[in-house]
Write a protein that binds this DNA or RNA. Structure first.
Lengths: 205, 205
DNA sequence: GTCTATATTGTGATAGAC
DNA sequence: GTCTATCACAATATAGAC
Protein backbone atom coordinates (compact mmCIF):
# COMPACT_ATOMS: atom_id res chain seq x y z
CA UNK A 1 0.00 0.00 0.00
CA UNK A 2 1.54 3.28 -1.09
CA UNK A 3 1.63 6.44 0.97
CA UNK A 4 -1.15 8.23 -0.84
CA UNK A 5 -3.77 5.55 -0.28
CA UNK A 6 -2.47 5.08 3.25
CA UNK A 7 -3.25 8.74 3.88
CA UNK A 8 -6.64 8.45 2.25
CA UNK A 9 -7.61 5.48 4.39
CA UNK A 10 -6.54 7.26 7.55
CA UNK A 11 -8.26 10.49 6.53
CA UNK A 12 -11.51 8.61 5.92
CA UNK A 13 -11.38 7.05 9.35
CA UNK A 14 -10.75 10.28 11.19
CA UNK A 15 -12.93 12.65 9.15
CA UNK A 16 -15.87 10.24 9.18
CA UNK A 17 -15.77 9.92 12.93
CA UNK A 18 -14.95 13.47 13.94
CA UNK A 19 -16.11 15.65 11.07
CA UNK A 20 -14.10 18.40 9.42
CA UNK A 21 -14.00 20.75 12.40
CA UNK A 22 -13.20 18.02 14.90
CA UNK A 23 -10.34 16.56 12.89
CA UNK A 24 -6.66 17.42 13.42
CA UNK A 25 -4.13 16.84 10.67
CA UNK A 26 -1.76 15.40 13.25
CA UNK A 27 -4.43 12.84 14.13
CA UNK A 28 -4.67 11.68 10.53
CA UNK A 29 -0.89 11.46 10.29
CA UNK A 30 -0.78 9.33 13.44
CA UNK A 31 -3.39 6.92 12.11
CA UNK A 32 -1.59 6.71 8.76
CA UNK A 33 1.70 6.27 10.64
CA UNK A 34 3.44 8.86 8.52
CA UNK A 35 4.82 12.33 8.94
CA UNK A 36 2.43 15.25 9.15
CA UNK A 37 4.04 17.18 6.32
CA UNK A 38 3.34 14.35 3.91
CA UNK A 39 -0.34 15.17 4.18
CA UNK A 40 0.38 18.55 2.64
CA UNK A 41 2.76 17.07 0.12
CA UNK A 42 0.01 14.84 -1.27
CA UNK A 43 -3.07 16.94 -0.66
CA UNK A 44 -1.96 20.58 -0.29
CA UNK A 45 -4.47 21.50 2.41
CA UNK A 46 -6.85 20.09 5.00
CA UNK A 47 -9.82 21.21 2.94
CA UNK A 48 -8.62 19.51 -0.23
CA UNK A 49 -8.00 16.30 1.67
CA UNK A 50 -11.45 16.56 3.20
CA UNK A 51 -13.09 17.15 -0.16
CA UNK A 52 -11.44 14.04 -1.52
CA UNK A 53 -12.81 12.04 1.41
CA UNK A 54 -16.25 13.59 1.21
CA UNK A 55 -16.69 13.11 -2.51
CA UNK A 56 -15.51 9.54 -2.31
CA UNK A 57 -17.91 8.76 0.53
CA UNK A 58 -20.81 10.59 -1.05
CA UNK A 59 -20.17 8.70 -4.27
CA UNK A 60 -20.87 5.43 -2.52
CA UNK A 61 -23.95 6.84 -0.90
CA UNK A 62 -26.26 8.59 -3.32
CA UNK A 63 -25.75 6.74 -6.61
CA UNK A 64 -26.49 3.38 -4.96
CA UNK A 65 -29.85 4.75 -3.84
CA UNK A 66 -30.70 5.90 -7.29
CA UNK A 67 -29.26 2.76 -8.81
CA UNK A 68 -31.57 0.44 -6.90
CA UNK A 69 -34.59 2.63 -7.53
CA UNK A 70 -33.73 2.67 -11.20
CA UNK A 71 -33.67 -0.99 -12.08
CA UNK A 72 -36.54 -2.93 -13.58
CA UNK A 73 -37.77 -4.78 -10.51
CA UNK A 74 -41.31 -4.47 -9.15
CA UNK A 75 -41.79 -2.04 -6.25
CA UNK A 76 -41.75 -4.57 -3.45
CA UNK A 77 -38.48 -6.08 -4.66
CA UNK A 78 -36.88 -2.66 -4.85
CA UNK A 79 -37.84 -1.91 -1.26
CA UNK A 80 -36.52 -5.26 -0.07
CA UNK A 81 -33.28 -4.81 -1.95
CA UNK A 82 -32.89 -1.26 -0.72
CA UNK A 83 -33.50 -1.95 2.96
CA UNK A 84 -31.12 -4.88 2.91
CA UNK A 85 -28.30 -3.22 0.99
CA UNK A 86 -28.30 -0.02 3.01
CA UNK A 87 -28.74 -1.60 6.41
CA UNK A 88 -25.78 -3.82 5.66
CA UNK A 89 -23.69 -0.92 4.40
CA UNK A 90 -24.40 1.27 7.44
CA UNK A 91 -23.87 -1.60 9.76
CA UNK A 92 -20.36 -1.96 8.39
CA UNK A 93 -19.73 1.80 8.13
CA UNK A 94 -21.71 3.27 11.00
CA UNK A 95 -20.30 6.79 10.64
CA UNK A 96 -21.28 7.39 7.03
CA UNK A 97 -24.84 8.67 7.42
CA UNK A 98 -24.16 10.99 10.32
CA UNK A 99 -21.01 12.28 8.63
CA UNK A 100 -22.69 13.11 5.35
CA UNK A 101 -25.73 14.68 6.93
CA UNK A 102 -23.70 16.83 9.29
CA UNK A 103 -21.28 18.10 6.68
CA UNK A 104 -24.07 18.80 4.23
CA UNK A 105 -25.93 20.82 6.84
CA UNK A 106 -22.80 22.85 7.55
CA UNK A 107 -21.92 23.26 3.87
CA UNK A 108 -24.95 22.66 1.65
CA UNK A 109 -23.03 24.14 -1.27
CA UNK A 110 -20.89 21.00 -1.33
CA UNK A 111 -23.77 19.19 -3.01
CA UNK A 112 -23.70 21.65 -5.85
CA UNK A 113 -19.94 21.53 -6.20
CA UNK A 114 -20.08 17.75 -6.08
CA UNK A 115 -22.63 17.56 -8.86
CA UNK A 116 -20.74 20.06 -11.00
CA UNK A 117 -17.42 18.39 -10.34
CA UNK A 118 -18.89 15.27 -11.92
CA UNK A 119 -18.77 12.42 -9.46
CA UNK A 120 -21.12 9.57 -10.11
CA UNK A 121 -24.09 11.79 -9.43
CA UNK A 122 -23.83 13.65 -12.68
CA UNK A 123 -24.79 10.61 -14.66
CA UNK A 124 -27.33 9.40 -12.17
CA UNK A 125 -29.06 12.76 -11.81
CA UNK A 126 -31.61 11.61 -14.33
CA UNK A 127 -32.09 8.25 -12.73
CA UNK A 128 -35.06 8.96 -10.44
CA UNK A 129 -37.03 9.44 -13.62
CA UNK A 130 -37.38 5.67 -14.02
CA UNK A 131 -38.70 5.34 -10.49
CA UNK A 132 -41.04 8.28 -10.95
CA UNK A 133 -42.46 6.78 -14.12
CA UNK A 134 -42.92 3.42 -12.45
CA UNK A 135 -44.87 5.02 -9.58
CA UNK A 136 -47.05 7.10 -11.85
CA UNK A 137 -47.82 4.08 -13.99
CA UNK A 138 -48.78 1.97 -10.98
CA UNK A 139 -51.04 4.74 -9.73
CA UNK A 140 -52.66 5.10 -13.13
CA UNK A 141 -53.36 1.38 -13.22
CA UNK A 142 -54.84 1.52 -9.73
CA UNK A 143 -52.25 -0.89 -8.32
CA UNK A 144 -51.15 1.54 -5.60
CA UNK A 145 -52.76 4.53 -3.96
CA UNK A 146 -51.85 7.99 -5.25
CA UNK A 147 -48.78 9.38 -3.52
CA UNK A 148 -46.08 11.80 -4.65
CA UNK A 149 -42.98 9.82 -5.70
CA UNK A 150 -40.79 12.20 -3.69
CA UNK A 151 -42.71 11.31 -0.54
CA UNK A 152 -42.24 7.63 -1.24
CA UNK A 153 -38.49 8.02 -1.67
CA UNK A 154 -38.17 10.09 1.49
CA UNK A 155 -40.25 7.57 3.44
CA UNK A 156 -37.91 4.81 2.35
CA UNK A 157 -34.80 6.83 3.15
CA UNK A 158 -36.18 7.91 6.51
CA UNK A 159 -37.14 4.46 7.70
CA UNK A 160 -33.81 3.01 6.58
CA UNK A 161 -31.28 5.67 7.48
CA UNK A 162 -32.65 7.41 10.56
CA UNK A 163 -32.14 4.45 12.92
CA UNK A 164 -28.42 4.69 12.19
CA UNK A 165 -28.14 8.43 12.59
CA UNK A 166 -30.04 8.38 15.86
CA UNK A 167 -28.41 5.27 17.26
CA UNK A 168 -27.35 6.82 20.59
CA UNK A 169 -30.87 8.01 21.36
CA UNK A 170 -32.55 4.85 20.16
CA UNK A 171 -30.12 2.58 21.94
CA UNK A 172 -29.73 4.67 25.08
CA UNK A 173 -33.32 5.66 25.64
CA UNK A 174 -35.84 3.60 23.69
CA UNK A 175 -34.21 0.17 23.39
CA UNK A 176 -32.66 0.43 26.81
CA UNK A 177 -36.12 0.78 28.30
CA UNK A 178 -37.42 -2.26 26.43
CA UNK A 179 -34.24 -4.24 27.01
CA UNK A 180 -33.63 -4.93 23.32
CA UNK A 181 -30.30 -5.27 21.52
CA UNK A 182 -29.53 -2.74 18.78
CA UNK A 183 -28.38 -5.45 16.36
CA UNK A 184 -31.52 -7.50 16.53
CA UNK A 185 -33.58 -4.32 16.37
CA UNK A 186 -31.97 -3.38 13.06
CA UNK A 187 -32.29 -6.90 11.70
CA UNK A 188 -35.98 -6.86 12.46
CA UNK A 189 -36.31 -3.62 10.52
CA UNK A 190 -34.86 -5.06 7.33
CA UNK A 191 -38.03 -7.08 6.85
CA UNK A 192 -40.29 -4.50 8.42
CA UNK A 193 -39.41 -1.59 6.15
CA UNK A 194 -40.54 -3.09 2.81
CA UNK A 195 -43.72 -4.23 4.51
CA UNK A 196 -44.48 -0.71 5.80
CA UNK A 197 -43.70 0.79 2.42
CA UNK A 198 -46.10 -1.59 0.66
CA UNK A 199 -48.86 -1.13 3.21
CA UNK A 200 -48.63 2.63 2.84
CA UNK A 201 -49.25 2.19 -0.89
CA UNK A 202 -52.11 -0.27 -0.76
CA UNK A 203 -54.93 1.06 -2.93
CA UNK A 204 -57.93 2.39 -1.01
CA UNK A 205 -60.95 0.22 -1.71
CA UNK B 1 -32.18 41.26 29.19
CA UNK B 2 -29.20 40.65 31.46
CA UNK B 3 -25.77 39.56 30.32
CA UNK B 4 -26.10 35.94 31.30
CA UNK B 5 -29.21 35.27 29.21
CA UNK B 6 -27.74 37.37 26.42
CA UNK B 7 -24.78 35.01 26.35
CA UNK B 8 -27.03 31.97 26.49
CA UNK B 9 -29.11 33.15 23.54
CA UNK B 10 -26.01 33.87 21.48
CA UNK B 11 -24.41 30.57 22.45
CA UNK B 12 -27.51 28.67 21.37
CA UNK B 13 -27.49 30.35 17.99
CA UNK B 14 -23.85 29.66 17.26
CA UNK B 15 -23.52 26.18 18.79
CA UNK B 16 -26.71 24.96 17.12
CA UNK B 17 -25.54 26.05 13.72
CA UNK B 18 -21.85 25.16 13.89
CA UNK B 19 -21.61 22.45 16.53
CA UNK B 20 -19.09 22.34 19.36
CA UNK B 21 -15.99 21.92 17.21
CA UNK B 22 -16.99 24.55 14.68
CA UNK B 23 -17.81 27.21 17.27
CA UNK B 24 -15.41 29.95 18.37
CA UNK B 25 -15.88 31.71 21.69
CA UNK B 26 -15.16 35.00 19.94
CA UNK B 27 -18.03 34.28 17.59
CA UNK B 28 -20.44 33.85 20.49
CA UNK B 29 -19.18 37.05 22.09
CA UNK B 30 -19.74 38.94 18.84
CA UNK B 31 -23.31 37.70 18.52
CA UNK B 32 -24.00 38.53 22.17
CA UNK B 33 -22.32 41.91 21.65
CA UNK B 34 -20.22 41.56 24.76
CA UNK B 35 -16.60 41.04 25.66
CA UNK B 36 -15.07 37.62 25.19
CA UNK B 37 -13.87 37.31 28.78
CA UNK B 38 -17.41 37.63 30.05
CA UNK B 39 -18.13 34.22 28.60
CA UNK B 40 -15.61 32.72 31.00
CA UNK B 41 -16.80 34.89 33.86
CA UNK B 42 -20.30 33.43 33.57
CA UNK B 43 -19.60 29.92 32.30
CA UNK B 44 -15.96 29.13 33.19
CA UNK B 45 -15.22 27.18 29.99
CA UNK B 46 -16.39 26.51 26.45
CA UNK B 47 -17.42 23.02 27.42
CA UNK B 48 -19.54 24.14 30.36
CA UNK B 49 -21.26 26.71 28.17
CA UNK B 50 -21.88 24.07 25.57
CA UNK B 51 -23.31 21.64 28.08
CA UNK B 52 -25.76 24.28 29.25
CA UNK B 53 -26.88 24.83 25.66
CA UNK B 54 -27.06 21.13 24.87
CA UNK B 55 -29.04 20.15 27.95
CA UNK B 56 -31.46 23.00 27.42
CA UNK B 57 -32.01 22.03 23.78
CA UNK B 58 -32.23 18.34 24.52
CA UNK B 59 -34.80 19.09 27.21
CA UNK B 60 -37.13 20.54 24.64
CA UNK B 61 -36.59 17.62 22.36
CA UNK B 62 -36.94 14.26 24.03
CA UNK B 63 -39.52 14.85 26.79
CA UNK B 64 -42.00 16.29 24.31
CA UNK B 65 -41.81 13.06 22.31
CA UNK B 66 -42.47 10.99 25.35
CA UNK B 67 -45.08 13.44 26.57
CA UNK B 68 -47.23 13.11 23.48
CA UNK B 69 -46.86 9.34 23.38
CA UNK B 70 -47.85 9.18 27.01
CA UNK B 71 -51.23 10.89 27.03
CA UNK B 72 -54.57 9.15 26.88
CA UNK B 73 -55.48 9.71 23.23
CA UNK B 74 -56.10 6.91 20.75
CA UNK B 75 -53.18 5.96 18.51
CA UNK B 76 -54.24 7.88 15.44
CA UNK B 77 -54.64 11.12 17.42
CA UNK B 78 -51.21 10.68 18.94
CA UNK B 79 -49.62 10.31 15.53
CA UNK B 80 -51.45 13.37 14.20
CA UNK B 81 -50.46 15.45 17.21
CA UNK B 82 -46.88 14.25 17.02
CA UNK B 83 -46.34 14.91 13.33
CA UNK B 84 -47.85 18.37 13.63
CA UNK B 85 -46.04 19.46 16.79
CA UNK B 86 -42.62 18.31 15.68
CA UNK B 87 -42.83 19.47 12.11
CA UNK B 88 -43.78 22.92 13.39
CA UNK B 89 -41.00 22.92 15.95
CA UNK B 90 -38.30 21.92 13.46
CA UNK B 91 -39.61 24.32 10.93
CA UNK B 92 -39.03 27.12 13.41
CA UNK B 93 -35.74 25.70 14.71
CA UNK B 94 -34.20 23.98 11.72
CA UNK B 95 -30.83 23.32 13.36
CA UNK B 96 -32.10 21.38 16.36
CA UNK B 97 -32.31 17.85 14.94
CA UNK B 98 -29.01 17.91 13.12
CA UNK B 99 -27.29 19.50 16.12
CA UNK B 100 -28.51 16.94 18.62
CA UNK B 101 -27.84 13.97 16.40
CA UNK B 102 -24.34 15.10 15.50
CA UNK B 103 -23.28 15.89 19.04
CA UNK B 104 -24.74 12.65 20.35
CA UNK B 105 -22.83 10.68 17.77
CA UNK B 106 -19.61 12.45 18.76
CA UNK B 107 -20.29 12.13 22.48
CA UNK B 108 -22.82 9.40 23.21
CA UNK B 109 -21.91 9.60 26.87
CA UNK B 110 -23.70 12.95 27.07
CA UNK B 111 -27.01 11.08 27.08
CA UNK B 112 -25.99 9.24 30.19
CA UNK B 113 -24.68 12.35 31.90
CA UNK B 114 -27.85 14.17 30.91
CA UNK B 115 -30.09 11.51 32.39
CA UNK B 116 -28.05 11.30 35.58
CA UNK B 117 -27.84 15.05 35.91
CA UNK B 118 -31.63 15.07 36.07
CA UNK B 119 -33.02 17.20 33.32
CA UNK B 120 -36.59 16.53 32.33
CA UNK B 121 -35.70 13.10 31.10
CA UNK B 122 -35.26 11.64 34.54
CA UNK B 123 -38.95 11.92 35.26
CA UNK B 124 -40.04 10.96 31.79
CA UNK B 125 -37.77 7.92 31.56
CA UNK B 126 -40.69 5.81 32.64
CA UNK B 127 -43.11 7.45 30.24
CA UNK B 128 -42.86 5.11 27.23
CA UNK B 129 -44.44 2.51 29.48
CA UNK B 130 -47.87 4.02 28.87
CA UNK B 131 -47.36 3.87 25.11
CA UNK B 132 -46.01 0.34 25.31
CA UNK B 133 -49.02 -0.80 27.30
CA UNK B 134 -51.38 0.86 24.87
CA UNK B 135 -49.77 -0.92 21.92
CA UNK B 136 -49.74 -4.28 23.60
CA UNK B 137 -53.37 -3.90 24.57
CA UNK B 138 -54.40 -2.96 21.03
CA UNK B 139 -52.53 -5.96 19.67
CA UNK B 140 -54.14 -8.26 22.20
CA UNK B 141 -57.59 -7.03 21.19
CA UNK B 142 -56.73 -7.52 17.54
CA UNK B 143 -57.19 -3.84 16.70
CA UNK B 144 -53.70 -3.54 15.22
CA UNK B 145 -51.24 -6.01 13.79
CA UNK B 146 -48.46 -7.27 16.05
CA UNK B 147 -45.41 -5.01 15.96
CA UNK B 148 -42.74 -4.22 18.54
CA UNK B 149 -43.56 -0.87 20.20
CA UNK B 150 -39.93 0.23 19.74
CA UNK B 151 -40.26 -0.24 16.00
CA UNK B 152 -43.40 1.87 15.98
CA UNK B 153 -41.74 4.71 17.87
CA UNK B 154 -38.70 4.63 15.61
CA UNK B 155 -40.92 4.60 12.51
CA UNK B 156 -42.68 7.70 13.75
CA UNK B 157 -39.44 9.46 14.65
CA UNK B 158 -37.84 8.52 11.34
CA UNK B 159 -40.66 9.72 9.14
CA UNK B 160 -40.96 12.98 11.07
CA UNK B 161 -37.38 13.96 11.82
CA UNK B 162 -35.33 12.64 8.91
CA UNK B 163 -36.70 15.08 6.32
CA UNK B 164 -35.29 17.91 8.43
CA UNK B 165 -31.89 16.34 9.01
CA UNK B 166 -31.48 15.53 5.35
CA UNK B 167 -32.90 18.76 4.00
CA UNK B 168 -29.93 19.60 1.75
CA UNK B 169 -30.04 16.24 0.00
CA UNK B 170 -33.82 16.16 -0.25
CA UNK B 171 -34.06 19.72 -1.45
CA UNK B 172 -30.99 19.70 -3.66
CA UNK B 173 -31.39 16.32 -5.30
CA UNK B 174 -34.85 14.81 -4.94
CA UNK B 175 -37.17 17.81 -4.83
CA UNK B 176 -35.05 19.75 -7.27
CA UNK B 177 -35.58 17.00 -9.81
CA UNK B 178 -39.36 17.02 -9.33
CA UNK B 179 -39.51 20.81 -9.08
CA UNK B 180 -41.24 20.84 -5.70
CA UNK B 181 -40.87 23.42 -2.89
CA UNK B 182 -39.47 22.17 0.41
CA UNK B 183 -42.17 23.95 2.42
CA UNK B 184 -45.10 22.38 0.63
CA UNK B 185 -43.33 19.03 0.71
CA UNK B 186 -43.12 19.16 4.50
CA UNK B 187 -46.71 20.35 4.82
CA UNK B 188 -47.87 17.43 2.76
CA UNK B 189 -46.02 15.09 5.10
CA UNK B 190 -47.84 16.31 8.20
CA UNK B 191 -50.99 14.55 7.00
CA UNK B 192 -49.14 11.73 5.31
CA UNK B 193 -47.19 10.50 8.34
CA UNK B 194 -50.16 9.56 10.58
CA UNK B 195 -51.74 7.86 7.62
CA UNK B 196 -48.64 5.75 6.95
CA UNK B 197 -48.35 4.89 10.62
CA UNK B 198 -51.95 3.68 10.77
CA UNK B 199 -51.71 1.70 7.54
CA UNK B 200 -48.61 -0.06 8.80
CA UNK B 201 -50.62 -1.20 11.84
CA UNK B 202 -53.79 -2.34 10.10
CA UNK B 203 -54.61 -5.86 11.28
CA UNK B 204 -54.00 -8.61 8.74
CA UNK B 205 -57.29 -10.20 7.79
C1' DG C 1 -19.30 43.12 36.39
C1' DT C 2 -16.75 44.58 32.57
C1' DC C 3 -12.77 45.71 30.14
C1' DT C 4 -7.58 45.30 28.23
C1' DA C 5 -3.67 42.77 27.95
C1' DT C 6 -1.40 38.57 27.91
C1' DA C 7 -0.26 33.80 28.83
C1' DT C 8 -0.25 29.29 26.76
C1' DT C 9 -1.05 25.98 23.87
C1' DG C 10 -2.76 24.13 19.51
C1' DT C 11 -2.83 23.88 14.50
C1' DG C 12 -2.43 24.36 9.50
C1' DA C 13 1.11 25.12 6.54
C1' DT C 14 5.91 25.73 4.61
C1' DA C 15 11.17 25.73 4.12
C1' DG C 16 14.91 23.16 3.49
C1' DA C 17 18.11 19.18 4.56
C1' DC C 18 18.65 14.52 3.13
C1' DG D 1 9.51 11.27 -1.24
C1' DT D 2 10.29 11.78 3.50
C1' DC D 3 11.95 13.94 7.48
C1' DT D 4 12.98 17.97 11.09
C1' DA D 5 12.38 22.46 12.34
C1' DT D 6 9.78 26.31 12.42
C1' DC D 7 6.58 30.01 11.10
C1' DA D 8 2.30 32.45 11.69
C1' DC D 9 -1.69 32.79 13.58
C1' DA D 10 -5.87 31.16 15.95
C1' DA D 11 -8.18 29.92 20.19
C1' DT D 12 -9.12 28.99 25.05
C1' DA D 13 -8.30 30.82 29.18
C1' DT D 14 -6.66 33.95 32.92
C1' DA D 15 -4.65 38.17 35.44
C1' DG D 16 -5.46 42.38 36.89
C1' DA D 17 -6.97 47.36 36.29
C1' DC D 18 -11.12 49.96 36.70
Amino acid sequence: MNTETQIMEAAKKVFLEKGFDGTRMQNIADVAQINKSLLHYYYRSKEKLFDAVFNDTFSKFVPQVLGILNNELPLREKFILFAKAYSKMFFENPFIPSFILHELNRHPEKIVSYIKQGGTLKNSAEIPKVFFDQINKEIEQGNIRPMAPCQIIVNLLSLTIFPFVARPIIEGVILNFANIEYNSFINERIDLIPSIMMESLKPVV
